[in-house]
Every structure is written in structure tokens, then in C-alpha cells.
Write a protein that binds this DNA or RNA. Structure first.
Length: 826
DNA sequence: GGAGGTGACGTACC
DNA sequence: ACCGGTACGTCACCTCC
């Protein structure tokens, strides 16, 4: 039979010692299809140069004899072929060694130790990735597939009848066809419990939201049945809740089951409670229960239904460019959906009254609703990344940036006839981590001041465009200078001054990056044409991907790690940056600012057209795909000195554009570890100064704030300081205020884990006066009066002092009355 | 016991 | 452990006199 098909979920199973892929997807009528397929399993052995054919033949005979009995499997080398391939851009003669089971390739590789063989590769990419590459069955692409219908057949041990799909097919042929519309069936869920520790407390309720249903299942009933909202369904106890949940998910049978932090909370919790009650949480299409990966980051998988923890995708793809200070559902929803969680203060269920329970239902339902909407909003982006990297949705949605880059490379090697480099293991990895890091970008010390008419230029995807233009990668790195080669600027490498050279013959990594680079440009244009929160996010997501290629090359866990490449890229970054600064200055402009890939200068009397013409001239002098672009014209810009000393502070500035929009970088305003009052005060001061160029009003404003502080008219919430607990309490060598606050929380039995934002304020300490801030720490719930001196001297005044210094306003005189106090003391 | 330097730490920029 | 280096600023901690 023949049908159209879009692959979504990939699983693997063994049957009679061989590997099979089981792919769940849809046809265009939304029927669920299960496809069973296999593919050749092999690894590569790279031969040393100039091995005579007779020796190779002999070697092949020996390799063909290899047999293994491991883990209850009989596995053997089935055949050996000889091929001409590339490895790291260099032509090599290789043996393609076919074996029975992918899981045994590693053991087989260990047996292939012969003097003629240089390296063994291609046994460590995982069967699913291998299968996708081999059969070109790419996730989220449309195919016309042809095969044999499995109808309760005993082939594969009756696997077809064990899968809840409309039909199951043994694949024969696939043909890529043009994209069709696919709208995944999405179901969001969220649970509420009394305890945060997995499985420790009861699950009080669970909510489910799709575009068809809105439902809360609970056993916590209101005393008056008539009060029950329509979306609430009562069950008799927690056990029944688990059964109803499972039944409901199975009935809806979504493509994606989505949660927020659900990899590490909701699904493991449901499973733990189900185990307690001996209930089967058989959510999988094959009736299986969720499977949890071991390791630091928990992942929760359901066969056939793609479980997505949307938090993980947001963290990788957008977090860097988000305004939200935490990745809590509340803040993320506020930023992307303009909606927040329902206002409800969670208490232990024993302390809730009737009204509370009604609010709690609503709160629970709304969390699923927000999660549902987040997935809907980001589905186009997730889809785009899956198509670019060709990794399945389940894996991609959980991956970090290095994985995005690496998957993209691995899935495209064949176009270059390349065989894959191996994953690094220890001690190689720890060696890489221990080497001295290479010198990074150049940051110009800015000239402090308030300026008018500031122009900003920046390079488009600078690192990536350098990699492409100078053909930099592990494979193209030359051992010594060649006549036709790219030469890096002189750089310091492991304590030695040196240069690196790269071949002019295009390497596969630079070639591949060109595509990411183009995609990034495309999404940037799209955003400029139609600026909204989503085009912005998409643009940023590809900005992240493009920017992380260089990071990937310098990442110790990367297959294509190359410190020489990384050092060269950065040397070019410094060179192009400094050259640009010099050219702008030579043209007669006053350069105020520069950081890595950008330069800011004063327009002076020149028109915007003249600036654009100058930019064009600069671009004509740049090599390859490198491009400098106009970041913007700004009405005013503010740079300050460092807190200590008189030199300009790097990575700290504020700009206002012609529309009156502000761009604030590095200031305390944008730092979450300062109290709100300090941040808002500074923000307002910056606004007053940038909007009107008048510091007088700003000074009056600060005086008002100071007065309020002194008269204790500031609400405590404005004074809370938030600091993240980055490691476990016992690991801290220095006991800072937030560690003290965390200790207090622990003593009070407040749940606490790594990564939590710790909240505290600094209080007056009556009697004993200590110099240490940490001895004045109080939790927000603790009674106490805020410490006036601390908030003035350590929060408010430091945040604005440097700004007023620009205008020669003497803070000592105005706010500290230093001389008088000194006199009064005696 | 105060000054001043240094290290640990968290956070931001690109 | 899961992209990198550069930079600022606070607070604790140490040394020195």
C-alpha cells in the first residue's frame, strides 16, 4: 500500500538480534501511522596511507571473521567494503564494516585493531540518528511511503497489534514530496501537589488543555456539588485521578503532550504516585509507561507520543535574549503571551477553604492553558530547528546549543562524502577543559559622558561570517603555511606567539555554516519587515544558533573541537573590530564605544545619508560574506565611569533612539541581583537624562527617593534582593548574604534547591552592630525594619552616583553631608 | 582595628 | 557538562601595620 506520511516520533527495537526503527507519524488526513523499517548497520575503519591491495584484501578477510557474543546477542561482521571517502576534508581509503546490531558496533570497533588501520569511526552516533541519515527519513518532512501493511501479523513478534495506530506498515520505498499542512494535536497538562519532592505528597488535581478540551480532574471536592465549575471532573481518590488522567490522554491521543518543567516534575511525579498505588500509567501508544533517563538532567519519554517540556526549548533557544529574569511559567507567559498565571497563593491543602479550592482549580487549569499557548506560539520555531538539524522533536526540544550545531553537521556529512569524527571521551575531554583558554574579543574602554547623535554599526553574525570567509575549521587547518592559504593574525597560543593557516579549498564545516548564516539573515529581514514578539523570538533563536557555532568549536565536548580554529576566529574578530574603529576615526568621527563586533561613534554634523554611504564604503573593503550593518541612529547615549576609579566602564551604557525607545545595557537596572528600588530609581534617572538631556530633574527625583527611604516610606517588596543559589549550600567557600538567607530557609523547612532565586532584605540590627552585611539578612517573611543606611549607601546612591558624576554633581555634599558629620563627631 | 588587596560569586554583554 | 571569553560590582576574607 501507499500513503503520504510525516514522521514525528522515532523509537528503536530489536527483533531477532537486528535493529529496527519504529516511526510514528501522520498522514494528511491525520490518521496515525506506524512505520517499521531497518537499515544497514556499519562502522568505518580508516586505512593508513599507501597500504597495498593485497594487504587490504587480507585485512578484510580477517575482519570478516569477527564474531561477538555479548549481552545475549550473537553479532558478527556481515561484510566489508572498501570506499573512498573524506575524513576532516582529506581523502581517505576506508573499510565499511557491516554488522548485525548497532549496539555492538563499539565492541566490534574494539576488535578491529590492526597496524594497517589508522582510526575507527561512525559507531557512536546512535541508531536513530544513523537511521535518519541512512534512509533520509527526516522528521517533519512529508514523504510518499510504500510498504506492506502489517495486519495483526506475527512479523516482528506482533508489534503492529501492540501499537495504537490506525495502521502499521513495513516500509519498502520512500519518496520525499512537497510540504503539506500539518497541525499537530497538542495536549498540555499540569499537576498540583502538596509536596515538591517527587512522589512525596498527594497529587491534588491535574489539568488538561487542548483546543478541544479544558479539564481539571480532582478528588478534592467542594462540599456543595452545585458550586463545581463545568470544567472540573470529580473522581473518588488519587488513584482514580491517575487512572482518569491516563484514560483521558489515551482518548485524546495527542501528537505532543506538553508540560512546563514536566521532565523533572509532573511526569516523574505522576509515575511515582502511580507506582505507589500499583496503577499502570500506560500512556504510550504501545501501552508502555513513561521512561526516564538517568543522569543529571532528567528526561521523560512516552513511546509514540512526544512529551515536550517546553521550558527546555525556551531555555536553549530564547533565554539569552529574554527580558524575563527567571524562566518561571509566570514570567515567560507574561513576556510572550501577555498573560500571567492566576493569582493564587499556594498553601498546603489542609489549610485551604472552599473558596480557595475553586481558585485552585482555576489556577491549575490556567497553567495548562499557558503551557498550551506557549507551545502553539513556538511550534513554528521548534519545527524550523527540527528541519534544520534533522533531529527528532523529542531530542531537539531538549538539546543544548552544542547539540543543535553538532546534529546539523552530522546529518549533512554525506553531502561532502565525509565520515563522522568521534565523540571525545576522557581523558581527552578533561585535557581540553584544562588548557588555558584562548584570548577573546576586544572591548574598547568607552569615554564617559552624555552624547548626542550616536551611530552604531555592528557586524552581522561576526564569528560565523569569519569562519565562512576564512574557511576556518578542524579539517581545513593546515600544518604549515602553504602558498594558497588563509593566514590568521598573529596570536598568543599556549604561551607562544604564532599564526595558523587554513586551506583555501572550501571545508565542509564552513560550507555548512553558510546555510545557517543565510537563514539567520532571512529571519532578521522577516523581523524587520514585520516586527512582533514572535518574529523577534525567531530572529533571536537563529541569532543564537549562528552565534554558537564558534562556541561549539571551542567546546570541550564537541566532535569538531579545534582550539587552533577558535583562537584564529577570535584573532580575526579582534583584527576586524580594531580596523573598523581605526577607519571610523580616520574618517574624522569620535569613537565612543566598541565591544567585540560593534562600534559606536558620534555623527557630528554629518547626515544620515552620509553615514550610510560611509558604511557602504567600509563594506566594500570587507572579505567574503562579512558585513557591517547599521544598528541604528540614536538621539542620545550615556556612558559612565567604573565605580572604582575614573576609567570608563565597559559593557555598561544607555541609548535612546529617535522614537524615544531606550536600550539599556549592563546597568544595575538590568541586573536582577539589585533591589527593585535601586533598579527603578536608576532607570528613571537614565530616562530623565536621556529624554530631555536634563540632569536637574533627575537629581530632584533622587532626593525624593532618599527622603522616602529615610522616613521609612518604602514598601518592603521594593527592597528585596534576589540572588540565585548556583550550587548546593555546603559547596560555598564564601558565606555571602544569599547563602545565609538560604540557610535560614532550610532551617524553616522551606523547600530549596540549586537554581532557586533566594530572596532576602537587609534589616536594622538593634544593639550589636556588625560590619558584615550577612548578619543583617532577613527573609521577606521575617519581621523587621529595613536598614536605611544599607539601602542608601549600598543600593540607591551607588546605582546613580556615577551617572551624576558626568555632570560634576557632588554626591558627597548633597547626600552624605560628609564634612558636617565629621565635625559633629568630635 | 582599619585600610587595602584578593578571591569567590553572581550577573550581564556580545 | 552539555556554546565561548570579557567585564563589572559586591561581599567576605586575608594581610599588614
Amino acid at each position: 500500500m501507499k500513503t503520504n506520511f510525516i514522521p514525528l516520533d522515532y523509537q528503536t527495537f530489536d527483533y531477532q538480534g537486528r535493529n529496527y526503527a519504529k516511526i510514528i507519524g501522520r498522514d494528511e488526513k491525520d490518521k496515525r501511522i506506524c512505520v517499521i523499517d531497518s537499515c544497514p548497520v556499519y562502522l568505518w575503519a580508516i586505512l593508513k596511507e599507501n597500504i597495498p591491495q593485497s594487504k587490504i584484501n587480507n585485512l578484510i578477510k580477517q575482519i570478516e571473521k569477527i564474531k561477538l557474543d555479548t549481552k545475549g546477542r550473537h553479532t558478527k561482521v556481515e561484510k566489508v567494503e572498501i570506499h573512498n571517502k573524506n575524513f576532516l576534508d582529506k581523502p581517505v581509503k576506508v573499510l565499511k564494516i557491516f554488522a548485525t546490531n548497532y549496539k555492538d558496533l563499539h565492541d566490534i570497533a574494539d576488535k578491529i585493531v590492526f597496524p594497517e588501520i589508522e582510526k575507527r569511526r561512525g559507531y557512536d552516533i546512535g541508531f536513530i540518528t544513523h537511521y535518519i541519515i541512512e534512509k533520509k527519513m527526516h522528521p517533519l518532512n512529508w514523504y510518499e511511503i510504500e510498504g506492506e501493511l502489517l495486519n495483526n501479523s506475527m512479523e516482528f513478534g506482533g508489534i503492529d497489534s501492540a501499537v495504537d495506530a490506525d495502521f502499521c506498515m513495513k516500509l519498502k520505498n520512500i519518496k520525499k514530496i512537497e510540504d503539506k499542512k500539518f497541525s499537530p494535536k497538542i495536549l498540555a497538562y499540569d499537576i498540583e501537589t502538596d509536596e515538591l519532592q517527587i512522589g512525596k505528597g498527594e497529587i491534588l488535581m491535574v489539568s488538561l488543555v487542548s483546543d478541544q478540551i479544558k479539564k481539571v480532574i480532582t478528588w478534592k471536592k467542594l462540599s456543595d456539588e452545585k458550586e463545581k465549575p463545568d470544567y472540573v471532573e470529580y473522581v473518588k481518590d488519587e488513584g482514580e485521578l491517575l487512572e482518569r488522567f491516563t484514560k483521558e490522554v489515551r482518548k485524546i491521543s495527542p501528537d505532543f503532550l506538553v508540560g512546563y518543567f514536566s521532565d523533572e516534575f509532573d511526569l516523574p511525579y505522576l509515575k511515582a504516585r502511580a507506582e505507589k498505588f500499583h496503577i499502570k500509567l500506560n500512556l504510550g501508544l504501545d501501552d508502555s509507561q513513561p521512561k526516564f533517563s538517568r543522569g543529571i538532567n532528567l528526561t521523560s519519554r512516552i513511546n509514540g507520543i512526544i512529551h515536550i517540556d517546553i521550558l527546555k526549548f525556551i531555555r536553549t533557544a530564547y533565554a539569552q535574549y529574554m527580558k524575563s529574569e527567571t524562566l518561571s511559567l509566570n514570567e515567560v507567559a507574561k513576556e510572550f503571551l501577555g498573560d500571567t498565571k492566576k493569582n493564587f497563593k499556594i498553601k498546603h491543602s489542609s489549610q485551604l477553604n472552599e473558596n480557595n479550592w475553586k481558585e485552585y482549580y482555576e489556577y491549575n487549569l490556567h497553567d495548562s492553558f499557558l503551557t498550551f499557548q506557549l507551545l502553539e506560539k513556538f511550534w513554528p520555531d521548534l519545527k524550523e530547528f527540527v528541519k534544520v538539524t534533522q533531529e527528532p522533536i523529542f531530542e531537539l526540544s531538549r538539546a543544548g546549543l552544542s547539540r543543535y550545531v553538532e546534529s546539523y553537521i552530522l546529518h549533512n556529512l554525506e553531502r561532502f562524502n565525509e565520515i563522522p569524527e568521534k565523540r571525545p571521551y576522557n581523558p581527552e575531554m578533561s585535557d581540553r577543559r584544562n588548557v588555558k583558554s584562548v584570548e577573546g574579543a576586544f572591548v574598547l574602554e568607552p569615554k564617559p559622558g552624555l552624547y548626542e547623535n550616536v551611530v552604531m554599526f555592528d557586524f552581522t553574525s561576526m564569528h560565523t561570517s569569519i569562519i565562512i570567509s576564512k574557511n576556518i575549521s578542524k579539517g581545513t587547518l593546515l600544518e604549515k603555511k602553504e602558498k594558497e592559504s588563509y593566514e590568521s593574525p598573529e596570536l598568543d597560543f599556549q604561551g607562544k606567539k604564532t599564526r595558523f593557516y587554513f586551506s583555501k579549498k572550501p571545508g565542509f564545516i564552513p560550507e555548512l555554516l553558510k546555510e545557517i548564516f543565510e537563514k539567520r539573515k532571512h529571519f532578521k529581514e522577516e523581523y524587520k519587515k514585520n516586527p512582533n514578539i514572535i518574529t523577534k523570538a525567531r530572529n533571536n533563536a537563529f541569532k543564537v544558533l549562528s552565534a554558537s557555532v564558534h562556541g561549539y568549536i571551542g567546546f570541550f565536548g564537541a566532535r569538531y573541537y579545534s582550539l587552533e580554529s577558535s583562537a584564529s576566529i577570535l584573532a580575526f574578530v579582534r583584527k576586524f573590530n580594531k580596523e573598523t574603529i581605526a577607519k571610523v576615526e580616520k574618517e574624522g568621527y569620535n569613537v565612543i564605544f566598541s565591544d567585540t563586533d560593534s562600534v559606536g561613534f558620534l555623527r557630528g554634523k554629518k547626515t544620515e545619508e552620509q553615514i550610510k554611504a560611509f558604511l557602504k564604503k567600509l563594506n566594500s573593503e570587507l572579505p567574503g560574506v562579512m558585513e557591517l550593518e547599521l544598528e541604528g541612529f540614536f538621539k542620545r547615549g550615556l556612558w559612565v565611569t567604573k565605580r572604582t576609579g575614573i576609567t570608563g566602564a565597559k559593557k555598561k551604557y544607555a541609548l535612546i533612539d529617535e522614537k524615544g525607545d531606550l536600550k539599556i545595557r549592563g546597568f544595575e537596572t538590568v541586573r536582577r541581583d539589585w533591589c527593585n528600588l535601586a533598579r527603578e530609581t536608576q532607570d528613571n534617572v537614565i530616562r530623565l537624562i536621556l529624554k530631555e538631556g536634563n540632569e536637574k530633574k533627575a537629581l530632584e527625583y533622587v532626593k525624593e527617593i532618599v527622603k522616602k527611604i529615610k522616613s521609612r516610606n518604602i514598601p518592603k517588596e521594593e527592597l528585596i534582593i534576589r540572588t540565585q543559589l548556583k550550587k548546593s549550600l555546603s559547596e560555598y567557600k564564601a558565606i555571602s548574604p544569599h547563602v545565609i538567607a538560604a540557610r535560614k530557609m532550610k532551617e524553616k523547612g522551606i523547600p530549596l534547591s540549586e537554581g532557586n532565586l533566594i530572596e532576602y532584605y537587609i534589616a536594622e540590627t538593634k544593639g550589636k552592630e556588625s560590619k558584615l552585611v550577612r548578619e543583617k539578612v532577613k527573609l521577606p517573611t521575617e519581621e523587621g525594619e529595613y536598614n536605611i543606611e544599607y539601602y542608601l549607601e549600598r543600593q540607591i546612591l551607588p546605582a546613580v552616583e556615577n551617572i551624576f558624576q558626568i555632570f560634576n554633581i557632588d554626591f558627597e555634599e548633597i547626600f552624605r553631608e560628609k564634612k558636617q558629620t565629621k565635625l559633629n563627631d568630635f
